[in-house]
Design a protein around this nucleic acid. Structure first.
Lengths: 341, 341
DNA sequence: TTGTATGCGTTATCAT
DNA sequence: ATGATAACGCATACAA
């Protein structure tokens, strides 16, 4: 079923059908009614490929996600879901490309075959080959996260440095003198993953400012690693009375390690950090933490991208999100820590 | 940059470039070399829309996911990730459509605008309008999960009934006489969600067979609900000594409720069920449970769909996955339950 | 071994 | 207010 068939059934020309559909020129009420009826009855929809070929745009967005092999974090999943939802609201389709490294067939196909009008890139590194590739391809794109030098591109990011800094200040205000940062995995840090680096900077700077003793450790994204990490921290740094973290997946393990050590939160030990709301609320007690507005971020990324597509030469825009730190129940005054029962 | 430009730069006709690319007719070594060089230098890639229009296929698969509003479970996420990865391996792109209800613009656009060669449907209900729609559209599709009457369509599903049944038999073998099933949410059950219904059937049948007292409850997909649900269960049915569950997201709450009640697993209480491997291993102690091979399922779904696309008239295929129940540490002999400390 | 011509389904320009 | 037709970029049947 194509536009010619509809035209034949309605007894008009193809262009009339096209115009009746697009409304780009006036069609008499009578013929438009007839055409609409035929279309509804035949269940016709314009062929997307033909339209894309003619119009030079696909009404499709590319979304580059980390390779499926590594499980997505809840926060990453939140980005994906909200991007897809926001795109659907704008009648845009989303093409997924699981691409991590430099030369990826899926990535190349998406950006260079004119399959999409623009691309949203996630999990940006400080020095990211995909960004370079996108720039040289001249395809509109927006990043969730940002490179080391993101001045001339559009991005939206969470202010990890600022937020972790505020967490440290909050702990300092409560009298904590020895605090630790539980970061993401060492691999991610080595790969130049932005959030990890910026969290580290924010932590170190704030600790220096408040003259705290700050320990920083890397931790893989799972409960087992979180437990091992927390246990080691308690053993090797007995003076520590609080942690800040950007590693939500480690939290269940952190909780176990504290339980096992007989440490109650927040009486004996305080926890804060930057994590998806769901993790903060599922912790016991609920975490004092910056809730990353993943849903909002995805929607904003789509908006930014739509603007870059509409006006490729307009000035790039930057959105640095610094959500408030929700005061819940996991932080309290520092107490000298006693080794558990 | 299009094929005509490449032809001009290489000093040949467009068809020669096309054939050099596709290999569907012999091109002299010399000219092919020259063409390849020009292509590499210009960074040319065939326009996907033009190719799709000409060939009548898009090399793209549609993946219909639940609307983003409701958080995806880890298992659902596993399906998505593995589908995308498997498709990428086969040089196929994946178009995401977040569609739940009957009339969804995104869904209609994807299936009726010839945007994809086939569709993978997730979160199938026993009576599913999207399946009906896909059948009448005549578009190849495969479902992860199955309807009440899935005979003449291709699907891949987890044998919830059989697996939960085996869990119950396992508990019965250990001497448990009063057991409960923690199902998914009441809304899902009311909507005719297959896994919930089949888990219920499997549970009830096995309980009857072994002459057990079986309690079944619904529970929303989060830790808080799990905790409330488990607390209520302990209060209202003090004889219960074990549960089986298909609700992985409720597990952290279940654990808390047991902790709070002073019940040790598996000494005082046994837990088993069907959950993603990650949840089973993160539980403490690790869960005796059927590990759903989400990764495998996504890959198989892509295979099935490729076959339906290649031979639309071939007989539909069905894959009912019944992974072994991994014996870990969360089930043990029944003991009379004593109300906690 | 290579070139020419046609059509895929649409939208838009030109003509009536 | 409507119709005929060209063009988007590609793959392929047909010619040479």
């Amino acid at each position: 079923m194509n536009i010619g068939e509809i035209a034949r059934l309605a007894g008009v020309s193809r262009s009339t059908v096209s115009y009746a559909l697009s409304g780009r020129r006036t069609v008499s009420d009578e013929t438009r009614k007839r055409i609409e009826q035929v279309i509804a009855q035949a269940g016709y929809r314009p062929n997307a490929a033909a339209r894309a070929l003619k119009e030079g745009r696909t009404r499709t967005l590319g979304l580059v996600i980390p390779p499926a092999s590594q499980r997505l974090t809840d926060m990453q999943l939140g980005f994906v879901a909200s991007v897809v939802e926001a795109a659907a609201r704008a009648d845009l389709d989303v093409l997924l490309s699981p691409s991590g490294g430099d030369h990826d067939r899926s990535f190349e196909r998406v950006i260079t075959g004119q399959r999409v009008d623009g691309v949203i890139l996630m999990e940006i590194r400080l020095d990211d080959a995909r960004v370079t590739r996108l720039q040289q391809a001249g395809l509109p794109f927006v990043t969730i996260g940002r490179t080391a030098h993101p001045e001339n591109m559009s991005w939206i990011d969470v202010d990890y440095a600022g937020l972790i800094g505020r967490c440290v200040h909050h702990l300092a205000d409560l009298g904590h003198r020895h605090v630790a940062l539980i970061n993401r995995s060492a691999e991610l840090v080595a790969a130049g993953y932005g959030p990890s680096h910026r969290a580290l900077t924010g932590f170190t700077d704030a600790a220096t400012q408040r003259d705290l003793k700050g320990i920083t450790v890397c931790c893989a994204d799972d409960a087992a690693a979180g437990q091992a990490c927390m246990e080691q921290l308690l053993t090797e740094h007995p003076q520590i009375t609080a942690i800040a973290t950007v590693n939500e997946a480690a939290l269940p393990g952190v909780q176990r390690a504290l339980d096992d050590a007989g440490l109650a939160v927040p009486r004996d030990f305080s926890i804060t950090g930057v994590v998806a709301q769901h993790w903060a609320e599922d912790f016991r007690p609920p975490l004092t933490a910056a809730d990353v507005p993943a849903h909002d971020i995805g929607a904003r990324a789509v908006e930014l991208l739509q603007q870059r597509i509409a006006e490729p030469d307009s000035a790039p825009r930057h959105l640095l999100m610094a959500p408030p730190i929700a005061l819940r129940a996991s932080t309290g005054p520092a107490a000298a820590r006693i080794a558990g029962h």
